[in-house]
Design a protein around this nucleic acid. Structure first.
Lengths: 318, 318
DNA sequence: CTGAAAGCGCTTACAG
DNA sequence: CTGAAAGCGCTTACAG
C-alpha cells in the first residue's frame, strides 16, 4: 500500500479510501491510483484490515453432532452455503462443538434446538441466521414444510384418493408437526376425516419405512401413502412389492426431500423437493446482509418446496 | 493479552510464549498465566497474529467451473475437505475463478488440468495439494483408479465371465486411461483377448449409458458389462430391461463410484467405491502438514477404492 | 528464563 | 478532497 501511494504520489490514506470509499476521492486521483494498483498487482492484506476493523471475513456453521456430514441433506446444505459465502469472499468452517480458538463475523446454524439457539446468541456477539428455526426473534431461512405437505396431499386427493396413509418421522421437531398439519388441513379442506389408524411413526430409515408400511397395509385399506422422506418411501415401495401390491396402480407412494435419490428407483418417487442447496445460498446471502448492514430489520425467508410428479403416484383405482 | 500480562505480573511477551512455545516458559510462570487466561476468558486475536506471522488460516479450494457443486462427487469431496480443515481450525472457501481479493495459506485443487496446476503454482506462493493430479512434482492425494478397475474385472472373470464389455467415459483425463488399463491388464492376466468391439465411449449420463448398452448388446455377446460410473450403469440396467435381459442372470452389470446411489436400484449395483469423503479429509491433512512444516518431502497418497459386491453381478450363465 | 522496543499493514478520527 | 499521527493486538529479534 505504501508502494502504491508512493508511485501515485499520494498518501496511504488516499489509497485506503480508493478501496473503501472510492466515491469521496476525486475522480482523477482515484483513476491514477487504480492504475498504479493494477500495475503493481496490489493485493490488500486482510489481516491488517481485520486488526483495525475487527472483521475476520470468517463464518462459522454450526451443525449438531448427530447429523453426519455425508447425509445428502447436509451435503446439499453445505454446498449451497459454500457457494453463497465463497462468491462473496467469505470463508467458513463447520463447528460441531462449542469450543473454538478463533473468532468469526457471523454464524449459520442448521437444525439446532431452541436451547442451543439461545446459547449461541448469548455466547457469541455476532449475527446468527438459522435454518430449521425454533424461535421467531432471529433471522432465518426455511422451507415451508406445511405448504409442501399440503400440496402433496391435495394432489393425491385430486387423483381420487381418500384413504391416505402417513408415515411420520418420529423426531420432536418443528418440520414434523408442520408436515402433519399440512396433511390434516388438506384432508379437512376436502371433507375427509383424519383417522389416527392411518398414521405410523418411524425412525427415518429405509428398513423402518418397510416395516411400518407392512403394518399399515395389514391394518388399513389405504390407496395412497405419504411418507415424510424419500428414504421411508423407498422402504414403502419394497414393502408394497412384498405384499404383491403394484405401485402405483394398487398403491400410490409419495415421499419428501427430492434430493436426487427419488429418480433412481423404478418407479421414480413422486416427492416434495426441498431446495436445500438454494436454502444454503439464501442463508449465506442473509447473513452477509446482516453482517454488513446490522440495522436491517429481522429477515424471515420462507422457501416453498416444489411438488415433483413421478411414476410412483397414479389415479386412485376404485 | 495486555490485561492477562498485567494480572499475572508478567509482560505480554511471556503470555505470547505461553501460547506459542509453552515449553520455554518456566512451569510456575506458565501455570500462573494459564490460570489468569482462563479466568479472564482470554480469546486471542487471530487478525493481529496473522498480521505479524503472515498466516491467514484460510484455505482456497479450486474446483473448475464445469463441475457443478451439487454433483455427488463434488459434494462428498467438499464435505470431506470441510471436515478435515474445520477440525484443524482452518476456514476455507471455494474458488471457481482466478481473481480473488484476499490471500490464503494454502490451496487444494480438484480435477484441474496440468496447465492450470502449473499456473496456480506460479501465480500463488503458497502450498498446493492436488486431487486428480496430472503432474508428479506436487503433493497429491488420489484414488487408485487402475487398481479399482483391475479388481472389478478380476472379480467378473472369477465368476466365469470372459466376454466383458466396457463403457468408457469420454473425457481426456488420467482417471479414464487408468481404468482402461486396469481393465486391459485383468483381461491379459487371464489370457483373455482385448477386443475393441466390446468398448463403447459415452458421456457420463444415464441416458447415454442406456443408448450405448443397447448398441453393445446388439453387436456383441457379452455376459458382463463394466461401466465407468454408476450413472452409466443405471442406464445399462434400464437398457437390459428393454432388451429382455435379466440382470444379473443374463447380464452382469458393474459400475464405479459407489456414492450411495448404487444401493437404491433393484438390483443394487456392484461397484467400485471411491472414498471421496476420506480423500477430502486426507487432502486437508496433507495440506495442513505442508503449511505447518514446509520442509516435509513430497507427499503422494494413493487411496485404494473398495469393491462393493451387490446383486447386479452374478456367475456367468454358460 | 524473561522483558523493552520495533514493527506487521492497514483504518480512524481529526485537521486543513 | 487529501494528509499526519495514532493505534489495532500481536510476535520477532535482541538483550540481559
Amino acid at each position: 500500500m505504501k508502494e502504491v501511494a508512493q508511485a501515485a504520489g499520494v498518501s496511504t490514506i488516499t489509497v485506503s479510501r480508493v478501496i473503501n470509499t472510492p466515491e469521496i476521492v476525486k475522480e482523477e486521483t482515484r483513476n491514477r491510483i487504480l492504475k498504479v494498483m493494477s500495475e503493481l498487482q496490489y493485493q490488500g492484506n486482510q489481516a491488517a484490515k481485520a486488526l483495525v476493523t475487527k472483521k475476520t471475513r470468517v463464518v462459522h456453521i454450526f451443525i449438531s453432532q448427530n447429523i453426519k456430514l455425508t447425509n445428502p441433506f447436509a451435503m446439499h446444505f453445505l454446498a449451497g452455503v459454500s457457494d453463497g459465502l465463497s462468491e462473496r469472499h467469505y470463508s467458513f468452517l463447520v463447528r460441531r462443538e462449542w469450543d473454538h480458538p478463533y473468532k468469526c463475523d457471523g454464524i449459520i446454524t442448521m437444525s439446532v434446538t431452541a436451547d442451543q439457539e439461545n446459547l449461541i446468541k448469548e455466547k457469541f456477539d455476532v449475527p446468527v441466521v438459522l435454518f430449521g428455526h425454533s424461535l421467531p426473534n432471529y433471522d432465518w431461512v426455511d422451507v415451508d414444510n406445511y405448504q409442501g405437505a399440503y400440496e402433496m396431499v391435495q394432489y393425491l386427493i385430486a387423483l381420487g384418493h381418500r384413504d391416505i396413509g402417513l408415515i411420520v418421522i418420529n423426531e420432536n421437531r418443528q418440520f414434523v408437526s408442520d408436515r402433519i398439519n399440512g396433511y390434516k388441513q388438506a384432508l379437512s379442506d376436502n371433507g375427509i376425516p383424519f383417522l389416527s389408524e392411518r398414521i405410523e411413526f418411524a425412525e427415518n430409515k429405509e428398513d423402518v419405512g418397510y416395516i411400518k408400511t407392512i403394518e399399515l397395509l395389514e391394518r388399513t385399506t389405504i390407496t395412497a401413502l405419504f411418507c415424510m422422506s424419500d428414504e421411508l418411501a423407498l422402504g414403502a415401495i419394497r414393502a408394497a412389492r412384498l405384499m404383491k401390491k403394484n405401485v402405483p396402480h394398487d398403491l400410490s407412494i409419495a415421499g419428501f426431500d427430492g434430493l436426487g435419490y427419488e429418480r433412481l428407483t423404478d418407479p421414480a418417487i413422486t416427492t416434495v423437493h426441498q431446495p436445500v442447496y438454494q436454502v444454503g445460498q439464501e442463508l449465506a446471502k442473509v447473513l452477509v446482509e446482516r453482517m454488513e448492514q446490522p440495522d436491517t430489520p429481522l429477515i424471515h425467508k420462507m422457501i416453498t418446496p416444489e411438488l415433483r410428479k413421478n411414476k410412483s403416484v397414479f389415479k386412485a383405482n376404485h
